[in-house]
Design a protein around this nucleic acid. Structure first.
Length: 208
DNA sequence: AATCTTTTCAACCGCAAGTAT
DNA sequence: GATACTTGCGGTTGAAAAGAT
């Protein structure tokens, strides 16, 4: 027996939010808060939306002080360093970047940052390799690219980043602040991450 | 100008953890 | 402790926009 659905899917609107829906959700939350119950929220407002959808819309788009696009080099560095350290724990990474959402960072990483870094690595391999080895190295890089989201990818990126920034650790500490526990843990984890048998611990054990 | 391909990003889905009863 | 329900998370999808041909 499966779980009860969080909402009546037949009577729930899906797809992009209209400006009217945004306005209603925003106005209600700004005046009353979420009431600690997202599931009941759409009914109160009169929106034909799933509570989860309302929550996501608020957190990723309507919430005050949200920044979209235009990631700085500093933010790039923080994202890269944290990804290498802890993997795809986007909510934790987002917590280090005020105004950024986990969804935004995840999208940015998957669509641009990863390519940017792997592209640099590919280029540096070509430049570094003596003739005869370059093809193998290039193939390796391409093969590794296909194994994205793995520990191998993080290893690649780690090495790539190291070559780009000798002071990466201090930079990250500077960005995140001295109280950032993640950065402190990195010092410990960095030494063991390369020989870890599996990826960073995940809440989910589901196969992808 | 039309068509095809690639990129971007908002939103959905399913799962696990947390909480209430 | 068991069950039901809600929340939060990360992976994935698909429509729209942008770019290439």
């Amino acid at each position: 027996m499966g779980r009860a659905p969080c909402c009546d899917k037949a009577n729930v609107k899906k797809g992009p939010w209209s400006p009217e829906e945004d306005a209603r959700l925003k106005a209600y939350i700004e005046e009353h808060g979420t009431g600690g119950n997202w599931i009941a929220l759409p009914q109160k407002i009169g929106l034909k939306r799933c509570g989860k959808s309302c929550r996501l819309r608020w957190l990723n788009y309507l919430r005050p002080n949200i920044k979209h696009g235009g990631f700085s080099e500093e933010e790039d560095n923080i994202i890269c360093n944290l990804y290498i350290s802890i993997g795809s724990r986007w909510s934790i990474i987002a917590a280090q970047l005020p105004g950024r959402t986990d969804n935004d960072i995840k999208n940015y990483w998957n669509t641009r940052l990863k390519k940017k870094l792997l592209g640099r690595r590919k280029q540096s391999n070509i430049n570094r390799s003596p003739s005869g080895q370059s093809e193998d190295h290039l193939k390796d890089a391409e093969d590794a690219h296909a194994l994205s989201s793995s520990a191998l990818e993080r290893l690649q990126l780690h090495m790539q980043l190291q070559s780009l920034q000798n002071h990466s650790l201090s930079t990250t500490l500077l960005h995140c602040g001295p109280s950032c526990i993640l950065c402190k843990k990195r010092m410990i984890r960095r030494s063991s991450i390369l020989c870890k048998p599996s990826d960073a611990p995940s809440r989910s054990s589901k196969p992808s």
